[in-house]
Design a protein around this nucleic acid. Structure first.
Lengths: 242, 242
DNA sequence: AAGTGGTCTAGACCACGTC
DNA sequence: ACGTGGTCTAGACCACTTT
């Protein structure tokens, strides 16, 4: 590409794009090694340094993981350390937590206005709605409601979810080939209604965190919209600012 | 340094450290240009590429800002775009917001147990306590209480704050030479008590976001501990996950 | 010993801003 | 025209892991 044109894109950005395309196409699976920098350089016809810069950025975006002496891997939600990568809850007193998921409901329905807008679907298009409860050390802490494009998750139902031992995102990844890359969250404070209060075992109108999440896969395509209600008596939502 | 030693640190990390030291020492002031990569390479006796890698990381940490064709600058909270860099509130309907700060109280006191622990001070050591209200488009949305090490902010009082036109962090930066680099926040949901409800113009026991922040300056030294209560009827706390 | 990523160098050229 | 950061290359050597 002419470097002076207004659409100038450096080589390493193009290598990045080609690499992501290969990932999207399933050429390398989550958890597996990708070719060495030298091999990629040969394949793409650039120098190793240029591949390095592309891979550096993909590693920074948590799409790839470098391991010195071993190779570069496709990151995966299967990895226990990354299983709840997007869950920001920490215990107030600092002890470790390991959430247990209890699915409540899984139905297929037509997209409402809001869900359609967030997921980039036609209103009335097919979606899957999923509700679950998260327990921390036995205590019910989070109740979540998720909306997924029906066509992207064929065959997703209560049985599949109950049979799965692992995080939801690892299920999505290995069963449906959908990897969550990044997400945006909108956090607010709301009061617990009667239903929610019972599920979370708190008094009605207890303040809860409302966490609305839009999650994206490759190519910044939104594939999940969820809303969670977090009981923050013993836990907090952790965030790093920089 | 012997590269095989267990304390091996790559050259560019050392250059990073030296650069931060120069910043701490005030050799280059916020908003100003630092020497070119070529000059820094000569000064530190390394190649330009090594300086580049050090500067790249410092730019990623928002400590420096690169401007192609012009040079590399020390980032500043004076810059209007960075003024409220750490404030994550956005309007629900997406319109732009420009907070106005109304200082309520500024007193010197002795550090309580919690403040001392967070700021790394002796309990009973001198601190400054500061309370303020943030208004968004005329509406009171945030009430904050801050605790600062007294010795780091000599002469900070109500008058100084009221005379200042700009963000608090830009005041800290230009008047006291304290630059906030990064921060950790703990977010929870709480109910408004009577006092807070009046200040924020909401009903008593309205759910509010409790945002506790610990802010760090160079060398990961904590220099501010604050707690804010956010009214999230019309605004939300935005977060990016990756 | 061989292969991987990680660091460091030196040099060329491009894009951007200023003079 | 000049100086800045931005990209790209080629090659050397180091650190880590596996064979």
């Amino acid at each position: 590409m002419a470097k002076d044109s207004p659409t100038f894109s450096p080589l390493y950005k193009q290598i990045k794009r080609l690499t992501v395309q290969a990932l999207e196409a399933g050429e390398w699976q989550p958890g597996q090694v990708i070719p060495s920098e030298q091999d990629l350089a040969l394949r793409f016809g650039v120098s190793q340094g240029t591949v390095r810069k592309a891979v550096d950025e993909l590693a920074l975006e948590n799409i790839l993981v470098r391991k010195q002496g071993k190779g570069t891997y496709v990151s995966t939600h299967q990895d226990p350390r990354a299983a709840f990568r997007f869950l920001r809850l920490k215990a107030l007193d600092g002890h470790l937590i390991s959430p247990k998921s209890l699915p409540l409901e899984c139905i297929r329905a037509k997209a409402g206005c809001e869900a359609a807008r967030n997921l980039g679907l036609e209103p009335g298009g097919p979606i899957v709605m999923l509700r679950r409860l998260l327990r921390f050390e036995g205590k019910p802490i989070v109740i979540e409601e998720m909306y997924l494009p029906g066509e992207v998750f064929p065959g997703l139902n209560m049985e599949v979810i109950k049979d799965w031992h692992g995080s939801l995102y690892s299920l999505f990844e290995s069963r449906f080939g959908v990897r969550m890359i990044r997400a945006e969250e909108k956090v607010r404070a709301v009061a617990a209604d009667k239903t929610v209060a019972e599920l979370l075992n708190v008094a009605e109108s207890t303040p809860l965190l409302s966490v609305e999440r839009l999650a994206f896969t490759y190519g910044d395509k939104p594939v999940e919209w969820r809303r969670g209600l977090y009981s923050t008596a013993d836990y907090y939502y952790a965030n790093e600012l920089s």
